[in-house]
Each structure stands twice: as structure tokens, then as C-alpha cells.
Design a binder for these strands. Structure first.
Lengths: 381, 381
DNA sequence: ACCAGTTTCGGGAAAGTTCCCGATAGTTTT
DNA sequence: AAAACTATCGGGAACTTTCCCGAAACTGGT
């Protein structure tokens, strides 16, 4: 009753177990195991078939190699054939599959950008600058935020590496003390450029601003305005920006012969709650400061809000200077004196260096200038 | 002098032209063309070879199928073999190549997010909400901004589709009147969910807030505060949100028997410059408004700045209400009355619906509630 | 007609996975 | 002991593209 799939005979076929729910048969004559082929039903589970070069080749009765050559602008092809292929490709709306190309070349044309957050002005703007350059160069961008968590940062780096990004633009978290995950990136020779929050212990290109000069100017400005007891609400020591701005603060004090009071120097983790807590703490001191230099504008603004809620008059009783010149600084009352940094340009430069890195690996540190923008929050008239 | 590459004989070999700069030969005896193989030099242009399942298979002397089964947690495998494979995979730090998988399955595990901008509070926050859900589900995110330009939006959609994203989360530009590019997306059966700025002419899932109710409440609040000549600086008519908030504005006026003055209704393109221009225009009218309902918070804030610069007192001479409750609204002086919308949640819901869409396509419109937050900019006491 | 040289095209490997299905060996049932 | 069944593994296609290299079909020149 059952024909052998090989010799087409019936007599020697016998049952031989079940495989994956299907009856199996064995033909003694030709020593051959087989199962009955299922009737293939409506094969509609192939939803969207993108047009491939093979489709074009079949349509024109030529080989896929020729189609590929035409599309890639090779020379080894007849002008008429090329035109024919190009026309059909356009007509069929052919889109080359980047996945196949990526698999073959091990290049995805995607760069990863990893930032601590993008709720405030700074990081979104850097990203926009980077995107401007990268998309011009034909790269897509995959953005991750570490949320100021070391574990998330490690996980994100892993995820981006697993996605086989061609390069990485990174600003580390406040908690990043161990940088082994970035060493892994370097070991796999994936270009890596840090910006703003950099890793000086790694030999990688970096884009930063002149944090020291900016901080120095800011604090000197406060001194020139007559403030004498100047506090500094600083970032965590782990970040180089914190240390550089701190040094600018200290040197400015020293230059003008002002004492350094450790009570007035606070390192914190850049969260809003802590900013409020330390602002309150500073203003509650027996000898409160008459001015505060904040590590960045969001911090400065938290201080302003706390000062306002305590009835402390700005700038008369408290001068405040921030860093970064977020747009909100010009809007708040009184407007915030701050150190302007070319944020958009930082993104552009980071992207540029990353692209260069892909061509020709080299270490480059790019430093952008800062400029003090004096507004109402520090003019003690 | 030249041996045939096939029969190893010398006598019948003759020159036969040149191919790509290399001398070609022909053996009459075996009717065979050939060129001399080049001496292969140091093949060091294979930079980083990732560990593959084939490496594991070769190492253990088994087939790649078996390795794949072990790694994918299949049942058809011996427990000992699986353990052996898993151990070696861990030791070699094996990472499956997502490109190969994507090529095979036509799934990239990437979703694209397309927004008009992310300089303000709203869109970055939505994106964060969406990312929270999507990354939990194992998806990476590719973010593009159309920069309020229709052409850029079309180009971005094309780029994301070309990158073979598995789904799309979109908020359209102010200039988007033609939606053919989204029809292309739907035609290729790529899940597409709109949020905030939606396309009602397309049959797609959408996530919106109750714009009508929010606007109605806002305007009614102004009326209850005693304002009688209420202007509306609205968004472009092309956006549904504009139309809905407009309707809320109109209905609130009507309910309280206030006349509609077309002079006080301005549609604009949501750029900062135009906001300033129209704010100035409104305040320069012979009969200026005594309150303005703004389409969103950035607009409201521009109006506040213009009013301040003209010496118009808020809220005494001009009441202002915004929409969205950006953090800056609580900070500005006076604090801005605004309609709060669950922005983060909007991102979460959009992502959730997109994920559902991938499983089981269906049309769903999700509407989130709004809530009026009354602050100083509208309390005419 | 014969050969050298050029132009144009096709075949097939490679990239790394998953999955279908056949194959084998071993185990249990009749 | 044959028949029926299970557990485990290997082979190879498929996904799409690029690229190497050989093959065929030309062109001229002798």
C-alpha cells in the first residue's frame, strides 16, 4: 500500500517507528528510511518579500552577479545591460538589504551613543550635533541612556557591542569607576570616543571643553563682584570635569587671596534631590556662603529654587553661577550667570573624530573653548 | 615552460590573452583555460574574527546544528552534550551574531522612533518611556528627528525602513500634509504607531491625550478667573492636536457666552521666532487680549518673555495658560498654569501598543487623561 | 584561419544562523 | 526477534549580498 520513495516498490515497505509525530517507513529492498511528504498547503506565511537582486536577475534572465555589478557601479558591465537593470530596479523599488551586506562585511553602519540621561538640555543637544555629522556620512545612530547607573552602562555597552555597532560615542555615569567594559570595546577594536565625561585612564580620543578656564573665570567673576565666601557645589570626584572645574575654583580663590573653606566644598551625585539637600545645607550654615559656583546649570537652578523658597535674595544675598548655558538659564528669574560651552559643536566634533577613528585609529583630544555669560544672578550692584 | 593546471603537461600550453592584467594560458590537450595562481602573502586583513557556532562545533567535533540546538535551548539534545557546549560557549565568550539572525528571520529587533525634535522636555521624555518598555522586550531603538521638515521626515522614514526596523513610533511634523510615506510603511506591513501628533487619515493605532478636555478646562479656568478677552496661540491646522485644543477653546468660550474674535486666534508653526512675533502682535492690538491660551508650554513661555519685555504684568494684565506641564513651567516667574499630560506614560503606552501590533495587528486608539495645574500665571486675584 | 587581447557575463563561495528532515543507535513492545 | 518507538545528531537549504575568477563572446591583426 505504501510505495518506497526510492524504488517505487510496494512489497518491501514496512513501518519503522515514528519521527516527530509522523509515521516512518523502511524499504527492505533498497535499505531506505522515509516518511510520507506532507501535502503543502497554502504557503501564505511568507508575508513581505522584499525585492532582491535575484528577483531582478530572474526577471531579466541574467545572473545576480551582473545585477550586483550594475547596482554597485562596477566597470565590468555593458552599458545597455546596466541601464536595463537600473531601470528595472527603480521600477520594482529595489532596496538593497543592509543586513546581508552587514553580515558579509561585518559593518552595520550604525554607531552607538551612550549618555547618562537626556532629560536636560545638554545631552540631547550633543546628540543632535553628532547626528548631523553621522547621518551625513551615512550612519544611523542607536541611542542608549545609562540613567547614571554603572550596571546599566555596562549592560548598554554590551547590548550595543552585540548589535555590532561600528563605533561608540560615550559620556560615562557619575558612578563609573571601573572601566573594564570599555577595555573590552577597545580590545575588539571598535572605535570609541568619549565626550564631556571622559575616561582619562583610557587611551582614547576625547572631546571636552576648557573646564578649568571656564570655572576659573566664573569664580573670578564672583570675586570681582564682591563676593567673598564662595561655595562650590561640585560633581563627583570620579568625573574629570568635576576635578577640573574644582581646580579652576580653587585657583581663582588662591589668586585673589581668598581662603579655601572645606565646609563650602561639596561633591554630590548630580541628582535633583541631593542638589536641594546640599543647597539647603549650605544656606543653613552658621556662616553661609555669599555665593555659590555650581557644577552645571541644573544644579545652579536647584540652588536658586531653594534660595528663593528660603527667602534668600539673589544676587544681593547670594550670587550664583552655573555652567553650560542651558536655555532655561536665560529665562529664569533672575537670569543665571553661567559658563557657555559649545554643546552642539561638541557633538559634531565627537562624531568627526569617531569617523576619522574608523579610517585611521589615532588618539586625539579636542578641546572646545568656554565663555562666561554674565547675567543677573551674580551682579551684586 | 608552463604546466597545464589540469593535466600537468607542458607541451600543449599556449598563451591565451590577458585577464585583469594577468597572463592567461590555454591547454590544447585538455581544452582548459587557466591563469597562474598568485602567491598568497600574509593574510592579515581579517582583523577581528568573532567566535561563531562553527568554531564551537569544530572544537568539540560536533555539528553546528547541535551547537545551535544547545544554545537555543532545544529539546532534541543530550544533557551532557548541551552542558559541554554551554560551558565552551561561555569560556570562549561566544556572542550570537544578530546580523545573521536578522538576515534569516527578516527581523532586526530594532524599532525606529521618529520625532520632530528633542530639544524640549516633551519628546525626550516620551522616548524614555518608550525605551523603558522596548528594551525590556529585547528591542533596541533607533531615534531620528525630522526637525519639523517634511522632506527630512520622508527621508528618515525611508532610512529607517531601509534599516529594516521591526516597527515604527512616529510623531509627525507641522508640515506633514501628505502621508504617502506612511502608506508605504503600512503596505510593507511594518507596525506603525503614532503618538501625540497623529495621522487620523490613516488606519493606525494612536496614543493621544484628551486634548479637547484639557483645552476646555484651561480656557474655562481663565474665564472663571475673570478674564474675558482670551486669545489662542494655536498650532498649525494640519495637526489634529491643534484642532482638538482649538475646539476645546471655542467650546469653553461658547459655554460661557463669550464671543469668538478671529483676531485673537492665530495658527502658527511652533517655531520660537514666530511665537515671539505673534505674541508681540497680539499685545499690540488696539484691543489686546487679557489672557492667552497657548498650544503648549514652550509657546506659553515665549509669550511670557515677550509680555515681560513689554512691561505687561502677569497675571494682572495678562493671564497665560500652557499645555504639557514641562518642568520649566514650575520654575519660571510667575509659575505657569498648564495642562498636565502623562508624557512618560505616553511613551510606555505607545511602545506597548507597538509590541502588541507585532503579535497581532489591530487598530487601537489609546487616550490618556489630562489635568489642569493652576499656578501663578493665571490667578487674577 | 589563427592568435592575442578585450569586454561582458555567470558560477559559486563566503558571511553566521536557524530549521527542516533524514539518519543512526539504542530501547521497549509484541 | 521482529517491529515500533525514542533520543540524539548531522547535512544542507535558506536568508541576501559582494567578490573572485573562470568562461564565453567579441575585436582586430596577421
Amino acid at each position: 500500500m505504501i510505495k518506497c520513495a526510492k524504488c517505487r516498490q510496494i512489497d518491501f515497505v514496512q513501518k519503522s517507528g515514528i519521527v516527530r509525530g509522523k509515521q516512518r517507513y523502511f524499504c527492505k529492498a533498497c535499505d531506505y528510511h522515509f516518511t510520507l511528504p506532507e501535502v503543502v498547503e497554502n504557503r501564505k506565511n511568507k508575508p513581505r518579500h522584499q525585492v532582491t537582486i535575484i528577483d531582478i536577475a530572474n526577471e531579466l534572465g541574467i545572473s545576480k552577479s551582473t545585477v550586483s555589478r550594475a547596482l554597485r557601479g562596477h566597470t565590468d558591465i555593458h552599458e545597455g545591460t546596466r541601464k536595463m537593470i537600473l531601470d528595472l530596479a527603480q521600477q520594482l523599488e529595489y532596496q538593497p538589504n543592509p543586513l546581508a551586506n552587514a553580515l558579509l562585511k561585518s559593518r552595520t553602519n550604525i554607531v552607538g551613543i551612550l549618555v547618562p540621561e537626556f532629560r536636560h538640555y545638554f545631552f540631547p543637544t550633543v546628540i543632535m550635533g553628532a547626528q548631523e555629522i553621522l547621518s551625513k556620512a551615512g550612519y544611523n545612530v542607536m541611542i542608549c541612556q545609562s540613567d547614571e547607573s554603572y550596571e546599566t552602562e555596562v549592560a548598554n555597552v554590551k547590548a550595543l557591542m552585540n548589535s555590532r555597532v561600528d563605533g561608540l560615542l560615550v559620556s560615562v555615569t557619575t558612578q563609573t569607576n571601573n572601566v573594564d567594559h570599555f577595555r573590552t570595546v577597545l580590545r575588539k577594536e571598535v572605535p570609541l570616543v568619549f565626550f564631556n565625561r571622559v575616561c582619562p585612564e583610557l587611551d582614547t580620543p576625547q572631546v571636552i571643553v576648557d573646564d578649568y578656564a571656564g570655572a576659573f573665570q566664573a569664580v573670578e567673576h564672583l570675586i570681582q563682584q564682591g563676593y567673598r565666601r564662595i561655595a562650590h557645589l561640585a560633581g563627583p570626584v570620579s568625573l574629570l570635569v568635576s576635578r577640573l572645574r574644582m581646580k579652576g575654583y580653587l585657583d581663582a580663590l588662591q589668586k585673589h587671596g581668598l581662603p579655601v573653606d572645606n565646609e563650602l566644598i561639596i561633591h554630590y551625585d548630580l541628582t535633583e534631590e541631593k542638589a536641594r539637600i546640599y543647597a539647603n545645607y549650605l544656606l543653613s550654615l552658621a556662616q553661609p556662603p555669599d555665593a555659590i559656583f555650581a557644577i552645571n546649570d541644573p544644579t545652579a537652578i536647584e540652588i536658586m529654587l531653594v534660595a528663593k523658597s528660603r527667602g534668600v535674595k539673589i544676587p544681593q544675598e547670594l550670587g550664583i553661577v552655573g555652567f553650560s548655558n542651558d536655555p532655561i538659564s536665560a529665562i529664569i528669574e533672575p537670569p543665571l550667570t553661567t559658563v557657555e560651552q559649545p554643546v552642539w559643536e561638541m557633538g559634531r566634533q565627537a562624531a568627526r573624530i569617531l569617523l576619522e577613528q574608523m579610517e585611521n585609529p589615532h588618539i586625539e583630544t579636542y578641546q572646545l573653548p568656554t565663555r562666561l555669560v554674565v547675567r543677573g544672578s551674580s551682579v551684586n550692584c
